[in-house]
Design a protein around this nucleic acid. Structure first.
Length: 919
DNA sequence: AATCCGACATACC
DNA sequence: GGTATGTCGGATT
């Protein structure tokens, strides 16, 4: 269960009539305990209570007591020996009227009327095994609100199916944004009288919901009518109490979806939450999940992103502002300069979603400004940071809507925090914040139209929500001499997952720059758009899938970026962008800071440590950019390495060892078609699989074996169903692998394509010729054994780890990127003999530990000494060939390899006869 | 004709 | 239910 589901369950429990017998079990059920667990507690089998309550080991001791005895019962629970024995984390007592609980770990208490205990649901989340408790508890309100809004949203769409169509979704979303504003306004005195909105609906509308829409619509009309027009508007007294808000939010249609009785009661429930506590940092990303069918599964799961967002904003510009604040000390003049500078900083997020980068940037800047004003003795001063300097582009209309709202709310909350409630209210209405969140495709829009270079005018862009034209003079003034920081977390989408319109977006940006634009990740588009304008002096930092700094991207994308005169001024390499909850997208990302200024200081951040460097290359390591390119032949004249054989068979040509044994047992003749099948898994973990390998001339005989015939039919079916024409066309040869790359006559040196980055050496192994290498490994067929020593070397691992692609942070081997580009000095005969011996020694050392697998042998914690020694000797021999001694460290290894690569790749001596020669 | 990638996928404790 | 670590086949060149 996720946090939202738990919230729903306990809210429901609190609303039901109190049942003293059932409550403890219902409570545990609400926190995700399975029916069987509950049953065993009920039967007494696992109930450890010594007080006639319910005590679940390692969790909670609950007791329902007679009315009026809640407090003494809680004390009894705390002092009960059974509570300690069962290591309970919580004690809880209730009489159905009052409710008390204590977290025995932290000593925190909850005491409230029974009906309000769901307000404290965050308190109990450890019961559900949710780990990021701190964040969830801080954001408990946002989760509750999201949960309830989601219920209302779904209910409204059920009653108003036409509002769910793509044509009316924007209207529906706009309506939800208005509601959220009203909830916030009525709890923060923005409306005159607390609960004005909810109470008005409650009092004025029929209980069956019939006229709810009309009432809300009338309120919205009032909020779009200036006080001077109120008389002409002919408002009823109850509607006239609502202030003029506008700011784009309440302009346009006042149509409201129809409310059923249920929808009306949901609405009133939501209104009764305390919306003051809304956290605009994360509320936006939570609430957008409400409107997004694909994201609903992740509802309430966006609670750990703030520290990640600061990994972008701090190095981009906030750290610098804080440094300047530090330097200014109490110097009034310097403080003023800093404030003036901040007033002209624009933050632009061209993939802003619900605006959390903008909101966090805004709040951080307000905090710095508040400190300036405090030191200057102007604590009440109105902010100099205009909300209009926080701009964004978002494709989906609901997040765009929420982003506007989140910024408005953030501004109000900052005013309350730094200046006081009264000052905040005085200037809040009507909303004058212009709409700087543009709904549209960031890869198609002209970024300069939203964020013009400083000192030039602003080109207005169309926006249906923007009614009054902007005050041109004001905006121009704000831009004068200002800085612009572009940031965000744009969408990532691998090249073979993009839609045709996304392909077209990339084509428009990159087709004039590279013929390989089709291989780029979708996020590359944001880099491409940025380098078109980086020369205006804008700096940018994006969080991106770490793939853009690996493998093919390192060659295709980065040559374009570096050639544009843009370079990397900071990087936060490889960390997980995760929300520590189930159901949630996890991906490894890097933050990349880009600038066309060459006088930038540069730094790489790892584990929150900053390391200043002179230059950062496309792999996000210190050093000059490297002109890497995939190669189809080894630049060092090494033997030709091939990808293994790819079945494209839907699993039909592959047999587990059990399946193979069964087939052999039932059909003796099947043996001749069964071959060992080796991919990464088999090579590393020693598991055995087999494949059917049938020559064209044997098909008919093979088909006479029924299970084989059945499998071939399965292959044909799978291939026919494929969206790829080339695969469908191969359905008429189901006995054949789709891609047959090669087999050995003597033996094969095989390298897994994906393997764990924890190992200190690449897991290369030797196979006999009776085995087939799958496309999950690479193969050197019948090549001299010294090649195995190369692949097993530290030098080669470091090279592959740097220049090949990766799967997250796993090593991903590649012939074109890793093997063919590997720079190796010309070997003498003696070198070859020595390396052959080294390879043999490594294999012998492994054999001494038979039947340990590669995974066992190369476990970094338990690597056998003799094997490590064999590798060490091998590395010694190889490294002497490069520089006459051992390398001091991996940095020195990479420097040498890049240096050699740069020399050799331009010459690229490729001699087909020697490179293909076999042992 | 041959290969690189995955806002991943899944088997494991 | 986190952590550890590698499948599979489409879209590409």
């Amino acid at each position: 269960m996720n946090a939202v589901e738990i919230e729903e369950a306990i809210s429901e429990l609190a609303e039901q009539e109190f049942d003293a017998q059932a409550f403890p079990y219902a409570f545990l059920e609400a926190f995700g305990n399975k029916a069987t667990t509950i049953q065993r507690l009920k039967s007494g089998a696992t109930n450890k209570s010594d007080l006639d309550g319910v005590l679940q080991t390692n969790n909670i001791h609950i007791k329902v007591c007679p009315v009026g005895e809640v407090t003494q019962t809680l004390i009894a629970l705390k002092e009960s020996p059974a509570t300690a024995r069962a290591k309970a984390k919580f004690v809880l007592s209730t009489d159905g009227v009052d409710f008390e609980a204590e977290d025995l770990t932290s000593g925190e208490n909850v005491a409230c009327p029974f009906t309000e205990f769901p307000d404290h649901f965050g308190f109990f989340l450890p019961l559900a095994g949710i780990t990021t408790v701190q964040q969830i508890r801080e954001n408990a309100f946002d989760i509750r609100a999201t949960s309830k809004l989601n219920k209302l949203y779904v209910e409204l769409l059920k009653d108003n199916p036409d509002w769910g169509t793509s044509a009316r979704r924007p209207e529906m979303n706009h309506f939800m944004a208005r509601l959220i504003f009203c909830f916030f306004a009525e709890d923060t005195d923005i409306f005159d009288g607390s609960g004005l909105f909810t109470n008005t609906i409650d009092q004025m509308s029929e209980r069956d919901g019939s006229n709810t829409a009309a009432i809300i619509s009338e309120i919205f009309r009032a909020m779009n009518t200036k006080s001077s027009d109120r008389v002409a508007g002919n408002f009823r007294n109850w509607a006239d109490k609502f202030p003029y808000v506008n700011g784009g939010l309440f302009s346009g249609s006042t149509e409201v979806p129809n409310f059923s009785k249920i929808a009306r009661s949901y609405l009133i429930h939501i209104g009764n939450l305390d919306w003051k506590r809304i956290n605009p940092d994360i509320f936006g990303s939570m609430i957008q999940a409400v409107a997004d069918d694909d994201e609903r599964g992740a509802l309430g799961m966006h609670y750990t992103s703030v520290p990640n967002i600061l990994k972008v904003l701090n190095p981009l510009f906030l750290d610098d502002l804080r440094e300047k604040l530090e330097e200014a000390g109490d110097n009034s003049r310097k403080l003023l300069n800093l404030r003036n500078r901040m007033a002209r900083i624009r933050v632009f997020d061209p993939a802003c979603g619900s605006g959390n980068f903008l909101v966090i940037a805004y709040k951080e800047m307000r905090a710095i400004e508040a400190e300036i004003n405090r030191r200057r003795g102007e604590p009440d001063r109105r902010t100099d940071i205009p909300l209009t300097n926080f701009r964004g582009i978002e494709l989906r209309d609901f997040p765009a809507e929420i982003a506007r709202l989140a910024l408005i709310i953030a501004e109000f909350q900052c005013d309350v925090l730094y200046r006081g409630q009264k000052e905040a209210l005085a200037e809040f209405l009507p909303l004058d914040a212009m709409n700087w969140i543009t709904c549209g495709n960031a890869l198609r829009l002209d970024w300069l139209s939203i964020c013009p270079p400083t000192g030039t005018g602003v080109k207005l862009h169309s926006d249906d929500l923007l009614e009054t034209p902007l005050d041109q003079a004001q905006i121009d003034f704000e831009n004068e001499g200002g800085e612009t920081y572009i940031c965000g977390n744009p969408p990532y989408l691998g090249y073979n997952k993009q839609s045709s319109s996304q392909k077209a977006d990339l084509e428009a940006i990159f087709s004039s720059k590279t013929k390989n634009w089709r291989s780029l990740d979708y996020i590359s588009g944001w880099f491409g758009k940025f380098i078109e304008i980086s020369h205006y002096g804008f700096d940018a930092a994006f969080v991106a899938t770490n793939s853009v700094c690996q493998g093919e991207h390192a060659a295709i994308l980065w040559s374009i970026i570096f050639n544009s005169g843009t370079s990397i001024f900071f990087a936060v390499p490889d960390f997980r962008w995760a929300n520590n909850a189930s159901n949630n997208a996890v991906v490894t990302v890097s933050v990349i800071g880009l600038s066309a200024k060459d006088d930038h200081s540069r730094a790489i951040y790892t584990d929150d440590l900053k390391r200043n460097v002179s230059c950062i290359n496309q792999y996000l390591i210190e050093g000059a950019p490297v002109p890497m390119a995939a190669a189809s032949r080894s630049i060092s004249g090494l033997p030709h390495m091939l990808l293994g054989n790819m079945p494209k068979d839907g699993g039909n040509l592959i047999l587990s060892s059990d399946e193979a044994a069964e087939l052999r047992r039932d059909f003796e003749d099947a043996e001749q078609y069964l071959y060992g099948f080796f991919g990464s898994q088999e090579l590393i973990n020693g598991t055995l699989r087999y494949c059917l390998w049938i020559g064209d001339e044997d098909v008919e005989i093979a088909r006479s074996i029924p299970p084989i015939a059945q499998r071939l039919a399965g292959v044909a079916n799978m291939r026919l169903a494929s969206p790829a024409k080339s695969t469908r066309d191969f359905a008429d040869r189901p006995h054949r692998f789709k891609q047959i790359q090669g087999t050995a006559t003597q033996y094969t040196i095989a390298v897994p394509s994906v393997s764990s980055e924890r190992r200190e050496f690449l897991p290369v192994d030797l196979l006999s010729s009776t085995n087939i290498v799958s496309s999950l490994a690479f193969a050197l067929y019948d090549a001299p054994l010294w090649n195995l020593a190369l692949i097993a070397s530290r030098l080669h691992l470091v090279w592959v780890a740097t220049v090949c692609g990766k799967l997250e942070t796993r090593y991903r081997y590649s012939n074109t990127l890793g093997w063919n580009t590997f720079p190796l000095p010309t070997l003498t005969d003696k070198n070859r003999t020595d390396l052959t011996r080294c390879a043999e020694d490594i294999l012998l050392a492994r054999e001494a530990h038979f039947p340990a697998t590669i995974a066992d042998l190369y476990d970094p914690e338990h690597m056998p000494e003799d094997l490590r020694a064999a590798h060490d000797r091998s590395d010694e021999v190889l490294e002497r060939i490069y520089i006459g001694r051992r390398f001091r460290n991996d940095t020195e290894r990479m420097e040498k390899l890049f240096e050699l690569y740069t020399q050799m790749s331009s010459a690229a001596p490729i001699n087909k006869t020697t490179s293909q020669k076999k042992a």
